[in-house]
Computed example of a mutant assay.
Amino acid sequence: MSAYLVACRYALLALAKNRLAAVLLIAFIPLWITVAKTLTTPRTFPFRLRATGTWLRAGGDEITMISGSLNAVSLLVGFLMFSAARRTRAFDRRLTASGYPRAALAGAKLTTLLIASALVSTYATAWMLLFWSPLQPFLLGIAVLAICLVYGAMGMCLALFLRGEVEGLVTIIMTSIIDLAPQNPVASTAADRALVALLPGYGSLQTSLAAGFTRNTTLSPLIHSAVWLTAMTTTALAAFALRTRNHRPPRRRRPPS
């Protein structure tokens, strides 16, 4: 237990020292939400909520603000966890080679993911509530938390396979764009097609739209988020275990006397 607590403390300290992430959190998320809300047309758009099959009507500015917020938090948490996992990669190998328990390090990484996702999702949801009054604000916060967890786990996973921060940042940016742009009912005519259900942000966006414009508690889309989170986390932990396992040299046979 003490090894886990020590690992958590150092993991959180390393996360807090990321000044770029702090600047992005403080400035980027409010700016993105403000631009999406104020510069997008407030004209009402009809769209079909694919998770329930019901038709809804909502302002284009509100729909774009939801999509933009999910895009912003996915980029931030994905990059934050990628950067933290990449910087501690070599140190983790040295620790485990010295006998530090891998389970404690893995648990600390998962705890860091949860704390970072909770902080970013709460901050982003609070900013959205300054501009808009969704019908189910708590469910909206859960949806934002879900995409933070998915992209944070994705960042941890990518850190084990990509060498530099530029590669990781570009990969996360392109993934988020490809993920959320086709799902925006205002910008895409394919937002209700079957293929969008395979995208990592599907559960969060569908749940956010349901939270904003209906009074029905729609949790079934979050199953998609749980599947993506499980797949990314399992891959990251499996790769971490393989990268940090101890390779003991074979024992030398004693020469015959």
Rank of each mutant, 00 (worst) to 15 (best):
Trp55Cys: 07
Ala211Asp: 06
Pro256Arg: 13
Gly152Tyr: 04
Ser188Gln: 05
Leu119Pro: 06
Leu160Phe: 10
Val170Gln: 01
Ala72Asn: 02
Ser208Lys: 05
Ala236Thr: 03
Ser133Lys: 15
Ile173Pro: 00
Arg163Asn: 09
Leu222Glu: 07
Tyr10His: 10
Gln136Asp: 03
Ser2Pro: 02
Leu110Lys: 05
Met1Gly: 10
Ala241Phe: 11
Ala124Arg: 07
Thr125Phe: 09
Ala124Val: 12
Trp228Thr: 05
Thr230Asp: 06
Arg87Cys: 07
Ser257Arg: 09
Ala84Asn: 07
Ile26Trp: 02
Leu205Ile: 08
Glu165Asp: 08
Val77Gly: 03
Arg248Asp: 04
Asn18Phe: 00
Phe82Lys: 04
Pro255Thr: 14
Val166Ala: 13
Ala146Ile: 09
Pro185Thr: 10
Arg248Gln: 11
Leu12Val: 10
Trp132His: 08
Thr217Gly: 00
Ala16Phe: 08
His247Thr: 13
Leu237Val: 15
Thr207Leu: 03
Asn184Trp: 04
Leu158Ile: 01
Val150Glu: 00
Arg193Ile: 06
Ala7Met: 10
Thr175Ala: 10
Ile177Ser: 10
Asp192Val: 02
Leu158Asn: 00
Asn246Asp: 13
Ile223Gln: 02
Ser225Cys: 11
Cys148Ile: 03
Leu119Val: 15
Asp92Gly: 04
Thr40Ser: 15
Thr96Lys: 11
Thr171Arg: 01
Leu49Phe: 07
Phe28Gln: 07
Ala36Thr: 02
Arg163His: 06
Val144Thr: 14
Cys8His: 02
Tyr100Phe: 15
Arg9Pro: 02
Phe161Lys: 13
Ala231Glu: 05
Leu75Cys: 06
Arg89Met: 11
Ala104His: 11
Arg86Phe: 01
Ala238Lys: 09
Asn18Glu: 14
Leu195Met: 12
His224Ile: 12
Ile26Tyr: 08
Leu199Asn: 10
Ile66Trp: 02
Ser69Tyr: 00
Ser117Phe: 04
Arg252Asp: 11
Val35Lys: 09
Ala191Gly: 04
Leu31Val: 11
Ala36Asn: 03
Ile142Glu: 04
Val23His: 04
Ala14Asn: 12
Arg86Ala: 13
